[in-house]
Amino acid sequence: MPDKDNMIAELKLIVKPYIQDEEGFENMHEGSDFINDLKINSANLIDVILDIEDKYDIVFDNESMDKMLNVRAALEIINQKISEKQ
């Protein structure tokens, strides 16, 4: 299982081009909400998902798409999909 802090750091690099709240981004933590705290435009959240899929070579299914509201959910989805590959 990858280290959680490292994963948050990796996720920060992925979301960086799309955030519109610098303060929310600086303080990004597990509870951060992509749309309300980082002010990521809801259409750009699709870009975040596609970038995550590319980086980790995983696919977001319907259930993952439903959950993709905050950093914690993103980490859970990434971990789950990586473990399903192995």
């Binding site: 798409m65 439903d66 993709m68």
Partner: peptide, 25 residues
């Protein structure tokens, strides 16, 4: 289509719907 989804989602949340992201729903 995207603006229709966004506006409809706001009503869904006002009505007490559980937040989700999946735009295909």
């Amino acid at each position: 289509l995207w603006s229709m989804k966004e506006s409809a989602y706001k009503v869904f949340i006002q009505a007490g719907g559980k937040p989700f992201y999946n735009p295909r729903r």
